[in-house]
Simulated assay, not measured.
Amino acid sequence: MTYISIGLRRYVEERASHCCEYCLQPADLSFFPHEVDHIVAVKHRGTTDADNLAFACWRCNRYKGTDLGSFDPQTGAFSFLFNPRTQQWSFHFALEDARIVGLTPEGRTTANLLQFNSEERLAERRRASSSS
C-alpha cells in the first residue's frame, strides 16, 4: 500500500468538494468512508501526487481497481476510463433522474465498469435527492 500524507488526502478531498469524483456521491451520505484513488495505479507507474489522485467512494474505487480502461458497451471498442484530473464530468456524463448516462466512450465505459446504475446505487441517489 502506498503512503499518502494527511495533508495530501485533505487537499484531494477538499478539491473534490467532499464528493466522489466518478459518481458524485457526497461523502457525508455514504455508509463507508470515501477513499483517495490513484487514477493511474502505482503498478502502472502512476505517481502519488495531486495530479494522479481522485476522491472516490468505496464502490467506485473497488469497481475501478487498477483498471485504466475497458470496452465501450455501445461500440465494443476499447476506451480509457474517465479521468477526473484531465476531463470535465459534464462533458462525459449526464444525470437523468437518478441515472448517470455516459455521453462519450469514456463516459459509457466508466459508467458500465464502475456500475453507476446498479439498483443499489440508483436507490442511494433517489434517497439523496428526496432528502435535499
Results as ranks from 00 to 15, higher is better:
residue 79 S to D: 02
residue 86 T to V: 11
residue 30 S to Q: 05
residue 25 Q to A: 06
residue 121 R to V: 02
residue 55 F to P: 00
residue 88 Q to D: 14
residue 111 A to P: 04
residue 105 P to H: 02
residue 12 V to I: 15
residue 128 A to K: 00
residue 68 L to I: 12
residue 91 F to S: 13
residue 124 E to Y: 07
residue 38 H to V: 00
residue 41 A to W: 12
residue 58 W to A: 12
residue 34 H to F: 14
residue 34 H to W: 09
residue 107 G to E: 09
residue 83 N to R: 04
residue 75 T to E: 04
residue 84 P to Q: 09
residue 120 E to F: 10
residue 64 K to S: 03
residue 63 Y to D: 08
residue 84 P to T: 05
residue 122 L to D: 04
residue 109 T to L: 06
residue 5 S to V: 08
residue 49 D to C: 05
residue 55 F to Y: 15
residue 123 A to N: 05
residue 26 P to T: 08
residue 57 C to V: 04
residue 51 D to M: 05
residue 15 R to S: 12
residue 22 Y to R: 03
residue 7 G to W: 10
residue 18 H to T: 09
residue 97 D to V: 03
residue 44 H to K: 09
residue 119 E to Q: 13
residue 21 E to N: 08
residue 120 E to S: 10
residue 79 S to R: 02
residue 91 F to D: 15
residue 116 F to Q: 06
residue 125 R to G: 04
residue 116 F to A: 07
residue 9 R to C: 13
residue 132 S to L: 09
residue 98 A to C: 06
residue 74 Q to W: 04
residue 65 G to Y: 11
residue 58 W to K: 02
residue 99 R to D: 15
residue 23 C to D: 12
residue 59 R to Y: 15
residue 81 L to S: 11
residue 17 S to M: 11
residue 42 V to F: 14
residue 66 T to F: 02
residue 95 L to C: 08
residue 76 G to N: 07
residue 64 K to Q: 07
residue 131 S to W: 05
residue 80 F to V: 01
residue 59 R to Q: 14
residue 28 D to Q: 05
residue 54 A to S: 14
residue 124 E to L: 10
residue 45 R to C: 06
residue 128 A to V: 07
residue 72 D to I: 00
residue 61 N to S: 14
residue 109 T to N: 05
residue 57 C to M: 06
residue 45 R to G: 12
residue 109 T to E: 11
residue 50 A to Y: 07
residue 90 S to R: 11
residue 31 F to A: 13
residue 116 F to I: 06
residue 36 V to I: 15
residue 55 F to R: 03
residue 52 N to C: 02
residue 106 E to M: 03
residue 30 S to N: 10
residue 57 C to D: 04
residue 4 I to W: 07
residue 118 S to E: 15
residue 82 F to G: 03
